[in-house]
Design a binder for these strands. Sequence first.
DNA 1: TTTTAAACGATAATAATTCTCTTATAATAA
DNA 2: TTATTATAAGAGAATTATTATCGTTTAAAA
Lengths: 140, 140
Amino acid sequence: MKAEEISRKLIDKKLKVTPQRIAILEAIINLNNHPTAENIVEYIRKNHPNISVATVYKVLDALVDSRLIKKVKTERDIMRYDGVVESHHHIYCSDSDRIEDFNDNELNELLEKYFEKKKIPDFKIEDIKLQIIGKYIKTK
Amino acid sequence: MKAEEISRKLIDKKLKVTPQRIAILEAIINLNNHPTAENIVEYIRKNHPNISVATVYKVLDALVDSRLIKKVKTERDIMRYDGVVESHHHIYCSDSDRIEDFNDNELNELLEKYFEKKKIPDFKIEDIKLQIIGKYIKTK
DNA sequence: TTTTAAACGATAATAATTCTCTTATAATAA
DNA sequence: TTATTATAAGAGAATTATTATCGTTTAAAA
Ligand SMILES: [Mn+2]
Ligand SMILES: [Mn+2]
Ligand SMILES: [Zn+2]
Ligand SMILES: [Zn+2]
């Protein structure tokens, strides 16, 4: 994705456009595999060697607040970020930190229909996502 | 749950039975709502005022390793623990840290059938759980 | 009982994240 | 275009959850 397109996203959310913000959002989208703040810093420093980690954290916060990115739930105390904001599922590898996206409209419709029928008392569902946990099989 | 029953669980997993381990496992099971290490310390100190937080963390680790408890995925950097080890789903409140269990066999069967039919290439599924995100509606 | 490997408690160390403060800059107005 | 100003960036200190270290205690086996 090019800088022009990224700027547009920031402007739409009324965020001031800065080189750092462009670089960070671009990094998350390009890296694609639910990077940590550290992954993002490492990636950005190739082209932008003076960026501060504090800036990265502050920008990540701003991007989450304006819903340009999302946090990913994990059972580790390292935060991970997702550049795909449309609702989708996640495949968690049970013996590494790999997290992959899983999109499946048939499944989404199945779930939607199921929860239309079967309501949770006193609860308004906003989003449903699957954690699919397992192992990738080595293929020769 | 009584101490006798908790001891049995520890013995079954070949863990040395100590008052601290009994208290910690009992706390997680009794608190029931996916407590943090801090919640557990606070709860235990009522009856067991000298327990060290380091011990709590070490015991939690041991209990996770032997699968007497589980970690819960969140998007915060505070770990939460689950005394319910049978596979189940979670309802995450979108404006608080409340996490509730959600059990539904009809849904489980639906999902199981679905993924029997629709395999994920090169991936062996071990567990599937839903994150149901939304809000509890205040009822008068 | 005695033995001893393992667990506990206190406290220091670490690591991810947040805060504070000064300087720089993007957006806007003149 | 330049001046203004609110906001963002950068450096480094502080905080917070968690982990490591190490001397002391204890559960459980002999
Ligand atoms: Mn940490
Ligand atoms: Mn932390
Ligand atoms: Zn994703
Ligand atoms: Zn649970």
